[in-house]
Design a protein around this nucleic acid. Structure first.
Length: 207
DNA sequence: GAAATGATCGTCT
DNA sequence: GACGATCATTTCA
């Protein structure tokens, strides 16, 4: 099945529910995507890397859709996005969780800290490790080897949405339900309040 | 089970 | 020079 580039050129928020259930192959492992987060550009999304315009790091987000945007974060993690929207417009989908459907042995060997198979790709950084994706893969075309992306023949029957993680309060983009997942799937990462949010109550007063 | 914390470095201000 | 689209471990209940 060839990759439908017209479909991928749609804005991330429209594409997100259609991408759930898609299978991404790389490094001898096949992953069925169960959870994504949508990010926009052009100053519309304060939580996006592209909020302040084009920089060296986010250049891939402005490129053609169907490519991989990989970035380094927290000094030790790599996160993978699928670039969407037409070239010149920054928009991407962060892969947050998935189910390993092939190459289980490979995935296990890369993720030795996982105790169960559902933990192999539950979380953005875990997912990239399980697939063997690194910063070197930034900008790669997902339709050509060593990558392969297969969209689902029929959309998943149900999709749940909610607020994104890692995005701060009102005006910061948290009010938009731009996190999409397949309800009930064990490989969806647990919702966690972001630690950088202000603690409840008046809090300690420092002199 | 839930919450707090250290690790660690590329990127932007 | 500060921070971040996180993870694994430790600590407390």
């Amino acid at each position: 099945m060839t990759l439908d580039r017209d479909l991928l050129a749609r804005p991330s928020v429209e594409l997100a529910p259609l991408l759930l259930g898609a299978v991404l192959r790389h490094g001898g492992v096949a992953l069925r995507i169960t959870e994504v987060e949508a990010y926009l550009g052009d100053g519309a999304d304060p939580g996006s890397h592209a909020f302040r315009g084009r920089t060296r790091r986010n250049a891939t987000m402005y490129g053609p859709p169907g490519h991989l945007y990989a970035y380094f974060s927290y000094g030790m993690h790599v996160c993978a996005n699928i670039v969407c929207s037409p070239e010149g417009s920054a928009s991407a989908l962060l892969l947050r969780g998935g189910e390993i459907v092939d190459g289980l042995a490979e995935a296990r060997s890369r993720r030795t800290t996982s105790k169960t198979d559902t933990d192999l790709a539950r979380g953005p950084a875990r997912l990239t490790i399980a697939l063997g994706i690194g910063l070197d893969d930034d900008g790669a075309d997902l339709a050509v080897p060593p990558f392969d992306l297969t969209l689902p023949a029929v959309p998943v029957p149900a999709v749940h949405t909610g607020p994104r993680t890692g995005v701060s309060g009102p005006g910061g983009g948290a009010e938009f339900p731009w996190r999409f997942w397949i309800p009930g799937d064990p490989t969806v990462s647990p919702y966690r309040r972001h630690p950088h949010l202000a603690p409840p109550g008046p809090g300690p007063v420092r002199l």
